[in-house]
Design a protein around this nucleic acid. Structure first.
Lengths: 158, 158
DNA sequence: TTGAATGTTCAGAGAGTTCTGAACTTTCAG
DNA sequence: CTGAAAGTTCAGAACTCTCTGAACATTCAA
């Protein structure tokens, strides 16, 4: 019988799941991430994860593949059969980029400006002001946030 | 009979609704925001909004109250009866703060560290590394993003 | 090569969310 | 004061999303 999972740690994983759900991740995957942040050993097999978190084999499989594709997690060779999963060292830091969301917002605003332009309202026209300022803002964020993240990485030797 | 709404503009509002849905706003409220970004005149009554976007009176009422509470929109006196709603000048810019999300993430990580500390693993212990780096990161973002936004405001005379 | 362990897929149950529409309350012009 | 317009509320229909579990596929130790 494997070690029982400390209740505290499991609850932490659950809270992380809830917090991450607020960022668009599904609760189950958030829970997986949360668990990988504190579990010992750091690399765990599907079976261990399912056992620790009370999730189905299916959820683990789907969740891990997603987390792997998005760069949060990597496979490492497991002692016995199969493989184990481990949090990427900078998982959440790179994952938090959110660049896609801001890029999406910039694109819609861009489309809106094009629409007004087609009606004869140039970007400097009053009618386009509301949109333009927002396009500029999202562009700004899109450019600056990655710089910010780089700065954090540098300051912390990552 | 009031002006018919240009199909282009309505579609823009819908696209904005979809884009904002990716940020946690419901599609209907995103649509309202999108519309208020391009509509002419900039201030519109509930009736106009319902007409323009094909939303029920109920949705407009609930949506506008939410948007008002969160600072995206303000009421302005309407020509006839009642009042009209207008996008706040910097609506999306202040709304994009996202501070709450990052604060939430910092709090969970903080709790996780406390949990490990109770088990005898100090913040500089190896077992706490994964969590600590994340706590530091969310704290960093929490502090720096508002500065970034201020900079944008200054550079654009807002 | 074989079969037990591991991993993947997906239909659908269950939970949750969004939006409407109808009943109700408030407001104000006359 | 009256009643019509404006605004609010909320039950529930329609829809969407998440996760499970069972069937299927793959892998590898012996």
């Amino acid at each position: 019988m494997p070690d029982p999972v400390p209740a505290d740690e499991r609850r932490f994983a659950e809270e992380m799941g809830t917090a991450l759900a607020g960022m668009g991740v599904t609760p189950a995957f958030g829970k997986l991430l949360g668990w990988l942040l504190i579990c010992e050993p750091p690399a765990q097999t599907s079976a261990q994860l399912a056992e620790a978190l009370g999730l189905s084999k299916g959820s683990i499989s789907t969740g891990m593949r997603l987390l792997e594709r998005t760069g949060f997690v990597r496979r490492v060779p497991a002692p016995g059969r199969g493989h184990a999963y481990e949090l990427m060292p900078n998982a959440m830091i790179s994952g938090t980029d959110a660049a896609a969301t801001y890029a999406a917002m910039r694109h819609v605003t861009e489309r809106g400006l094009a629409l007004l332009a087609a009606q004869g309202f140039a970007e400097d026209h009053d009618r386009a002001r509301r949109l333009r300022i927002n396009r500029d803002f999202f562009l700004f964020i899109e450019e600056e946030v990655p710089k910010l993240i780089d700065r954090f990485k540098q300051e912390n030797d990552l």
